[in-house]
Design a binder for these strands. Structure first.
Lengths: 138, 138
DNA sequence: CTTTGTGCAAATTCTTTGCACCAAA
DNA sequence: TTTGGTGCAAAGAATTTGCACAAAG
């Protein structure tokens, strides 16, 4: 369990000024590795922070991504999702329930960037699709 | 250059009834391998088909995807993109201009689906990010 | 003070829905 | 004449923008 103190320090590492809102969002991301959407983050935080606006959540995550503190994922047809884990790992998306899971135990070679004369490639995103444990029974 | 006749036959292979609109959309996809958005397809076709509605383009592509005739790609923050090439290949997205290019010459192992006890995985999408030839100079 | 962050409301963009009309078998 | 396809207009959802107020240094 990460504390507010941890999130505060993490933000400083990425030279992000730690406001109350920013710390709360980072705190949520560190403790909820569920690749949440803006809405999920917002709904989780408003109860304890009634004046929080969704615009601030948008601003905050844009800033985090820009500073490299979180990864923005394009996995979902509808929403952007955010991931605090910026290490090499893949994602699995369930076609039925839409939940996103991490896949860590993959050969490093899958993440190797190809050398290409036309493009300078600096990142890779690997996504697997299928049905998760609960959904595959139905 | 594919003709209307080719698209017509291609649709029939996937047991899609070839209406005028569907043939036009398929024709466009076969001849423009640019991973177009709904809007790009619509704007390309309206001039020669003034009564075409965007709803029909949406319906048509939903049907194509459902029947397995085209792949829908989640590459773009905003729009869905469609790809007539359903073979194993990766995509490169330029961070600057947003254009999507195909990458074909990758080892087959990259497309191998992992065996996972929790999920039944049936597809993979590999996307590379970086800067394209024109954009990397700036 | 001055700069930076926050939050409301309105605007914009993409997609979906409901329904009426048209076309094909 | 019944089924399926098309297209309009309206609704819905996610995100962005403009601007005023608040907070921090």
């Amino acid at each position: 369990m990460y504390t507010t103190h941890d999130s505060h320090n993490y933000l400083k590492q990425y030279s992000i000024k730690p406001s109350v809102q920013r710390t709360a969002v980072m705190d949520y991301l560190m403790n909820n590795r569920t690749h949440p959407t803006i809405d999920e983050i917002y709904l989780a935080l408003v109860p304890n922070m009634p004046t929080l606006s969704k615009t601030t959540v948008y601003n905050t995550l844009d800033l985090f991504v820009e500073k490299g503190a979180v990864r923005s994922l394009i996995l979902d047809e509808k929403n952007s999702r955010y991931d605090i884990d910026i290490s090499a790992h893949a994602h699995f998306i369930c076609r039925s329930c839409g939940k996103v899971h991490d896949i860590f135990n993959l050969e490093a070679s899958k993440f190797q960037l190809p050398i290409n004369s036309k493009f300078s490639i600096d990142a890779v995103e690997i996504s697997y699709m299928g049905f998760c444990e609960e959904c595959k029974q139905n």
